[in-house]
Amino acid sequence: MDVALARPVTQLPTGPWAYEIKVDGHRTVLWRTGDGVRLQSRTGRDVTALWMDLAVAAMRLPPGVVLDGEAVIYLADSEGGARISFEAAQSRALSSTHRARELAARHPATYVAFDVLAHPEAGDLRPRPYTERRQVLLDVLAGVGPPIEPVWSTTDPGEALLWYEALEGTGVEGLVAKPLRSAYKAGRIWSKIRHADTVETIVVGFTGTARHPRTLAVRLPDGRVALSQRLTTALASRIGPRLAPQPGRASTTAGDSYTPVGGDVVVEVVAGTTRHPVVTVVRLR
C-alpha cells in the first residue's frame, strides 16, 4: 500500500480543511485480514512481528478493514504524566522479534489511526472524501477502544493552533492539514507544520566502516554535502546493511573526507541544523 504524505509549510492553510495532531512514531498500515492482522511499514516491509501487541488488539476490528496510522509508545515523564517517545518506538522497530516481545511487555504500543482505506461493507474508501473516511474511521473504532484510537482532529484552525502550542514537548510533532474534500492517494497531498522540521536527504557516503558507519555524508537540499553527527548504535545497525561502498575517497563541501556510496539510501535530518556543516540524522527512510 503506497501511503499519502505531507509537505512542510510555514503556516496552516485555511478554508475547508481538517487539522490533526502529528504524533512522533512509526508510520504503519494495518490490515485486518480474513484470519489475522498484518502490519506494513511506510516502505512496505512486513513489521507484524515487531508490533504483535497491536496486531492482537486489532483482531477486534472487522475483517476487511485497512487503517493508516502511527505506532507510538508512551513513556512516563518526570511530572507523573506520559509523553510519546520516538526513541522507544525506534528501539522496537529496530529490534529482533524476541526483543520486541520483551519491549512490548514493558512498554505496550498504541496505534493512532488517522485514516481508513478500506471497509468490508464500503470497499475501497480511498476515492472518498476525507469527511466520509473520517466518519467511517470513528464508527469502526467506536467499539474497539485502546490501544487503537483515532487521532485528534478538528476543522477549527484556532483550536488546532492551541493544540500545537499546548502539546509541544509531549511527543506531538505538530499538525497535519487535510482538505475536507480530498481523496486518499500516494504522494504529498497534505500539509504539515512541525516544531522542529526535518528534511529528507540522500546518503552519498560515510565515515567508519560500512558495517558500523560512524557518520553519514548527506547531500542537503541546497546541494551542499555535509557530515552528520555521530550515529546512534540503533541507526548505524539499520543503515549499515544498506550502504554500497564505492572505490576511492570523496570530500564534503567543508573538505571532510568520506567513503562514497552508490544507491539511493534516504535519511531524514533535522532541518534546523542544515545551516551548519554538521546535521543530525533522525531516521532511515
Rank of each mutant, 00 (worst) to 15 (best):
Y184K: 02
Q135L: 08
A88V: 09
A104G: 11
S153T: 13
G187Q: 00
T155W: 05
H107Q: 12
G81M: 10
K185D: 13
T110Q: 11
A82D: 06
T155K: 10
D115Y: 02
V151W: 02
P146T: 14
D156L: 03
R188M: 03
L94I: 01
T110S: 13
R181T: 04
V136Q: 04
T209I: 01
A118W: 00
R211N: 03
R128D: 07
T131F: 12
L103C: 11
D197K: 14
V204G: 11
H107T: 13
F206H: 10
S95H: 07
E165S: 14
L161D: 05
P179E: 12
P129M: 09
G174W: 02
S91K: 14
D197C: 05
T201E: 09
R83S: 15
V176T: 03
T155Q: 14
A177D: 09
R92H: 11
A210N: 05
A210M: 03
G143A: 13
T110K: 08
W190F: 07
L162W: 15
V144K: 12
L180H: 12
H107S: 03
T201C: 15
P157A: 07
G123H: 06
H119K: 04
S95Y: 06
L141T: 09
A142Q: 13
A118H: 09
V176A: 00
V172F: 12
